[in-house]
Structure formats: C-alpha cells, structure tokens
Amino acid sequence: MTLNIWLNRTYATNYWFLQMLRNNPDHRRVRLFATHTDPTSPVLQAADVSFLEPQLVGDDYVDWVLEFCRMHAIDVLLPGKGIEEIAARHGEFDAAGVMVLASPAASIALLDDKCATYASATTLGLPVPPWRRARGADELEAAVLSLRGELETHEKICIKPLSGVGAEGFRLLSDDAMSLDDLLAPPAHRVRLDEVTAALRAADAEGRSVPAMMVMPYMSSPEISVDCLSTTFGELLAALPRAKSGRRRTFLDDTPRAVDIARQITEAYQLAYLSNTQLRWWRGELALLEVNTRPSGGLFAASLTGVNLPWAAVRLATGGDAGLLDPVLGASFVTVETLVPLPPEAATGTLHEPSLNVNPEPPAMLAAERSLVRPLS
C-alpha cells in the first residue's frame, strides 16, 4: 500500500528530506506531495506531486490544508507554514485520517518566542545567557545599556526578532568605525545602535508595526545543533548533535551535555516527532540558543550517521515504532551548492494555481539548490 506524505510550504533543503523518505530503509512505497507559493522552490521538483499554494493565512490557510488532505488522501502531513495553527486543530486532521507530525500547539507558540523560551527554560534550571526584551527605539537603547552592565568589556551584544527563521533580522551591534579590512571582507551583519534606533523611529513615524526584539550577548563559539526524534509524550528516542565551525560540520560523540539539554527540552514541552535544539558555549558551559519545533534545515546530514530520521518519524506516527535507531557519530562533513533543473513554466514565472507536477518515477538523486553532504576523512 502506498503511503501519501505531504510537506506543505517549507525551506529548500527539505528537498533532501523528501529523498530520504523516498529511499526509506523499509522500501515502503510512498507518494510524496509538496506545495509552495514559489514555483522555483526545489522542493516542488523533488516531489511526485506538486502544487502551488494559495495566498492564505490563519484559519483560512488551515481550512485549505485540511481540504487538500481530504482531496488527495494524505496519510501523513509534516507542516511547515502554519504549523501552530495546524497543530491547534489536530483533532480535525485526526478525524480525516491524517497523521500530523507536529508538537502541541501551546509548545510551538511558546518556543517560537525567543524571550518566552528563555524565561521558561530558566524555570527549568537550563542555562541561558542574560537577555532583554525591547520594542521600539527607546526600549532598545535602555535594554542595551542595561545588558552592557552585566557583560565584560570584550563581550558583544546582538539583536534579533522574537520570532524568526534562520538569521533573519539578526544583527551584531558595534560602535566601531568601519575599517578597510571590514570593507573588503565578506558582508557582515554588523550595525551601529544609532542606525537601528533611527530605522525604528522612522518606521514608527510612518505608522508601521515595529516587532519586539531580543537583546542578548553574542555567543561566538561554534553552534551545536541537536536534531531530535521523540514520541508524542516528549520521550527522546534519538538525538544527533552536530557542531558548526566555519565550513566544517561534525557529529559529536563526546558532548553528552548537549543531548542532556535536548532531552530536558523535549520532555518539558512534550515535543513530538522531529525538533531541533540549538546551543552555544557561554562562559564555559553550554547554553540554550533556541528551539525549533520543526526539523532543521540541515537534517538531511543525519544520513551520515546511518539513521534516517525523517522515515523514523513517519514510522513512529503510522505504526508506533521508529525502527532501529543506532547512530554512528563522529563523522565530519561539508556542504556544497548544486543545481535543480526547473520546468519551463517555473523558470519563466508563468506557473499558475492550480498547477500539477507529477513525477511518477522521480530519480533517486536529483540535483539540489542548496546543499549536498560531503563527508570529510
């Protein structure tokens, strides 16, 4: 029996996520669905069936997702866009026979707010760096001044929106004048505080909504990203910590504290199926950076450990058994860019809704737009 699996609007590297589902170790037949608002998304090219999504938000979007599931007999939905709203209505999906791979809506909402995450983590006894919440120019100036009083002179401050994906909105505050070396270096996220406050005041004067910001120390140590698989009760079944330092990525086999923190997070918030906990070193100990209640963009690298986490999550949802999980850690790798050929209608921007792309026999390894794992010896 073919299993229908759908990834709605998601990021480009989930191209490889779909390949891992197709090449699952159980050799189960799957039909992979993908939808996106951007016709050039490589995820659409990796799927067996792909559609353009309508421009909807909130409950209207969830209504469309639910109807799509019914129309196409979707068995498993791994939501990207609208994950909180979809999780809040999981009962309707259950009634339609759809397994939604998502954590509880309350946990998604809490962990999507970086300041709320830190406040909650503190009550759990988890290490977090000092932080401030600020909205608008005046609060930002006060927050930066207050935080500087807790930091050493060499420690820098960064800002970012309370909610965001990747490095969107991240800026490193610096009052240093630009040097020639700075000018000739690759583009950086460095800005002066007065530039930020001027932008905020200008937006306020125009009547624009100004988002709240998180103000915190910049933790320059290599990031550790822990890809997690857990039950619907938050029981951690697998945790794959990988460190990022420059180009090099390494699956760590000597940092049990990273797994301990990830376990505490998944248990406390009952994170289900696939999630990701990000950590950095702060003053000699691992501290929480943020938590993603969705699979990370780099999850495809887990294939180097011998564990197919996407398929394990699907198995867990459909049969209650994740299968054999015996990862081999220690491998290092780099990622490189490559290509995803686009059909003419996508390349010219003439693809319209509804548009169907059916790949009855998709190749096992098409080219990808973003990243391809290359192990290092």
Rank of each mutant, 00 (worst) to 15 (best):
residue 25 P to I: 10
residue 187 P to A: 12
residue 242 R to G: 01
residue 265 I to H: 03
residue 220 S to V: 10
residue 48 D to N: 14
residue 224 I to Y: 10
residue 275 S to M: 05
residue 43 V to G: 04
residue 52 L to M: 01
residue 255 T to L: 14
residue 365 M to A: 15
residue 226 V to C: 12
residue 112 D to N: 15
residue 140 L to F: 11
residue 24 N to P: 00
residue 166 G to N: 07
residue 299 L to F: 06
residue 173 L to G: 04
residue 65 V to Y: 00
residue 307 V to F: 02
residue 307 V to N: 04
residue 144 V to H: 08
residue 133 R to T: 12
residue 246 G to H: 06
residue 237 L to T: 10
residue 19 Q to H: 14
residue 85 E to M: 07
residue 85 E to D: 14
residue 137 A to R: 03
residue 296 S to K: 07
residue 91 G to S: 15
residue 259 V to G: 01
residue 308 N to S: 02
residue 271 L to H: 06
residue 224 I to Q: 07
residue 210 V to I: 14
residue 69 C to Q: 01
residue 94 D to L: 14
residue 28 R to I: 07
residue 47 A to M: 01
residue 206 E to T: 03
residue 114 K to F: 07
residue 246 G to K: 08
residue 159 I to D: 11
residue 125 G to M: 09
residue 158 C to D: 05
residue 340 V to T: 15
residue 285 E to N: 14
residue 85 E to N: 09
residue 280 R to A: 11
residue 153 T to D: 12
residue 350 T to R: 13
residue 348 T to K: 06
residue 276 N to P: 05
residue 297 G to D: 10
residue 147 L to N: 09
residue 251 F to C: 03
residue 207 G to T: 03
residue 171 R to H: 12
residue 20 M to R: 09
residue 194 D to N: 10
residue 50 S to P: 04
residue 330 G to Q: 11
residue 143 A to T: 09
residue 244 K to T: 08
residue 4 N to H: 15
residue 109 A to P: 08
residue 93 F to C: 03
residue 361 E to G: 01
residue 104 P to A: 04
residue 144 V to N: 07
residue 39 P to C: 02
residue 212 A to M: 04
residue 282 W to Q: 08
residue 76 V to A: 05
residue 44 L to H: 02
residue 207 G to E: 04
residue 145 L to W: 02
residue 226 V to E: 04
residue 273 Y to N: 06
residue 96 A to D: 08
residue 2 T to N: 09
residue 127 P to M: 07
residue 16 W to R: 15
residue 95 A to L: 14
residue 89 R to M: 06
residue 350 T to I: 01
residue 293 T to W: 03
residue 7 L to M: 06
residue 133 R to W: 13
residue 361 E to Q: 11
residue 61 Y to D: 03
residue 262 A to L: 03
residue 32 L to P: 00
residue 112 D to L: 06
residue 253 D to T: 10
residue 65 V to A: 05
residue 300 F to T: 00
residue 262 A to V: 03
residue 166 G to R: 04
residue 299 L to P: 01
residue 270 Q to K: 15
residue 310 P to H: 07
residue 229 L to N: 09
residue 103 S to R: 10
residue 22 R to D: 00
residue 222 P to V: 05
residue 281 W to Y: 15
residue 201 R to A: 13
residue 50 S to K: 02
residue 279 L to H: 12
residue 194 D to L: 06
residue 367 A to P: 13
residue 67 E to T: 09
residue 279 L to M: 13
residue 244 K to I: 13
residue 282 W to R: 04
residue 59 D to C: 00
residue 72 H to M: 10
residue 132 R to G: 02
residue 57 V to A: 14
residue 239 A to K: 01
residue 64 W to F: 08
residue 341 P to M: 03
residue 315 R to V: 01
residue 215 V to F: 07
residue 374 R to K: 12
residue 223 E to P: 00
residue 131 W to E: 01
residue 48 D to I: 02
residue 94 D to G: 11
residue 346 A to K: 00
residue 220 S to M: 09
residue 6 W to E: 05
residue 55 Q to T: 10
residue 118 Y to N: 12
residue 243 A to S: 15
residue 6 W to V: 05
residue 250 T to L: 10
residue 46 A to G: 05
residue 150 E to A: 08
residue 200 L to Y: 11
residue 69 C to Y: 02
residue 370 R to S: 13
residue 162 L to C: 04
residue 100 V to L: 05
residue 291 V to R: 00
residue 212 A to E: 13
residue 158 C to E: 13
residue 74 I to C: 08
residue 346 A to Q: 07
